[in-house]
Design a protein around this nucleic acid. Sequence first.
DNA 1: AGCCTTTGACCAGCG
DNA 2: TCGCTGGTCAAAGGC
Length: 320
Amino acid sequence: MSSPAKVPGRIPSHDSASSGAAGAVDFRFSDDGRPSSLVVTQESMFTIPPGLSPAILLDSPGFFLPAQQPPQAAHLQPEATTTRHHLPPPMPDHTTTKQSPEFSNSGSHHSQPPPVAADKPTEDGYNWRKYGQKQVKGSEYPRSYYKCTHQNCPVKKKVERNLDGFVTEIIYQGQHNHQPPRSGYAGVGTSGQLQPENFEGQSGNFNHSRVDASLIMNDDQLSGSSDSEEAGDDVTMPRSKRRNVEAEAFDPVSSHRTVTEPQIVIQVTSEIDLLDDGYKWRKYGQKWVYTSLLDQILTLEVFSHVIRYLYKELTILRAN
DNA sequence: AGCCTTTGACCAGCG
DNA sequence: TCGCTGGTCAAAGGC
């Protein structure tokens, strides 16, 4: 990536004005004007599949990956009252005794959930091997270096976590030349990796059987906000400031309170029965749930809004 | 046994 | 050339 132009942007996610944290993504462009990389901040909300180029993402309705999302049958929950337990919990760092906010307040009477694997790379569907860690100048937190463990895969990523284990920044480099291992997310195992193939060809497949998307959006973000500027009015906010705002939005106290505003929760199925949310679960039943055609249409509608919003925002930013 | 993390050393780019 | 810095290597140890 040579002399990239860094363009800040935001992914509309939770109602950041209330309690949700906004995922943020910086698109970087190479000299020829083509998107070259993504920098994702506050990763605990969204994980951008590292194998996808920004250009591909814009064409792909299913590019949001939950960092840790319990697999569920696809469904919509309009007017639902939800708590932030829907949020993928951040991954605590074992080197600190502090509990992540999500754990420390997730139900005051819950027993302490077992700590997630130490310094575990983000659960974005790929397996990573940490090959270094360093305290970089100008950064408050140590930076960890990961390589994709797939054979001959050139993808690397740099992850910065704060003392609570929250990912404060993640930078992907390169493109995967393979599909994510189907056997599960990072940390689940390394077996079952697929043979290298053109992953890009699959990127737009909305019905891909992996967990392809999980969005939690409020009504404003669904009802035409993509046509207004309000959703992106802080697009020009400096990244550092934006990060501070996001940090505030992730305040442990506020993030746990019950949210009463109408929300629509979209969760797309996963093949795996991995409920890696920090708690231990015992499965006591299984049942086929048929998603109605209406639900599927609504799901596509939501993603359509998101993609249009992102594309528009990107276009505006590039024009400036 | 195999894979992973840790961590000090080493390397390369830059001013 | 030297020092600084970010990135990578690789041995050691853990799981």
